[in-house]
Design a protein around this nucleic acid. Sequence first.
DNA 1: CCTACCGATCGGTAGG
DNA 2: CCTACCGATCGGTAGG
Lengths: 188, 188
Amino acid sequence: MINRKEQIEQTATNLFRTRGFAATSMRELAQSLGMEAASIYAHIRSKEEILQKICFRLADDFFAGFREAVNQPGPVTEKLQAAIAAHVQVITENLAAATVFQTEWRHLSEPYLSQIIQLQEEYEVNFRELLQAGQASGEFDIAETPLTARALLASLNGLAQWYKPQGQLTPTEIVASFSHLFLRGIAA
Amino acid sequence: MINRKEQIEQTATNLFRTRGFAATSMRELAQSLGMEAASIYAHIRSKEEILQKICFRLADDFFAGFREAVNQPGPVTEKLQAAIAAHVQVITENLAAATVFQTEWRHLSEPYLSQIIQLQEEYEVNFRELLQAGQASGEFDIAETPLTARALLASLNGLAQWYKPQGQLTPTEIVASFSHLFLRGIAA
DNA sequence: CCTACCGATCGGTAGG
DNA sequence: CCTACCGATCGGTAGG
């Protein structure tokens, strides 16, 4: 149902999440999979290749979610709510990968390192421009747009470190609470 | 003016910040200090000891700042503002150490690992109780107190990753913007 | 603070 | 997917 390569990547993602990329050895990964370390290389090229796939797939997901949220017609307030919902969805549906992306991207080598930094900046710019659009439309009243965009994104990203699928709050309730808090915080 | 041990810790903090704890070798650290790796052990017991000092010193600073902020008389709103100011101050005055604390604590071994997790939870509880106090006094109107506390802390902690001492915003302006955003977000 | 060195472990390859 | 193995590097110690 799931091929060996995906199994390796999934197991690696969980290990990278708890132990960190640099501190996870290929022998640990192999043991978790019930195989020898050398055998892993029949399926992947390198340890870093796994990290690359995790980071760039997540980045893709975040951008796709944002694009869809923003391309619908309507007031900026609704677009921002949709963007928050999309971001929360990517995280709750990819908990381990989202954590690894957030905390381990620095271990990428060039040119991937520069690329992922660039993508993170672009994503932040997307939110900043959304806030500015709301400012322009008269919906928002924001003193420091860059700081506000960073505060919002940091809050949303923090979700990866406390969300529990079996916890009290459903993703829908989480989205409502984030939206409530930040929309009140920036409403005109 | 500054002894060798502090010099080692400071240099290590900067290396841990950019390369990560696990990926920083004692030989790299030694080279940055202009000495041999073995010589470092005349001043410190182990690589992890450096990380321990970084994490627990920062935790101390955060708790001390919070305590001072909250022990003053006055409305909860002012206490929260003071707590935000204290947290921002600790980060801006210990940029590298704050980043390392936030991202590398998981590499601590027991019993330090459990202790630092405990401290992080306690600190979060402190903020949660402050929010609840404002709720009780009628100053705040918060739907999800735990989520709100986490959002606030994640926003403040994110500062460690974008604050530039030579940047546009002064710490005072940053505190004002965070306070503005969140107090509006939770005001009754 | 240095030289010399330890055992352990690392990511990865050769060859089957 | 395994056995066998590579060179490199790791954190740390002994002894001065």
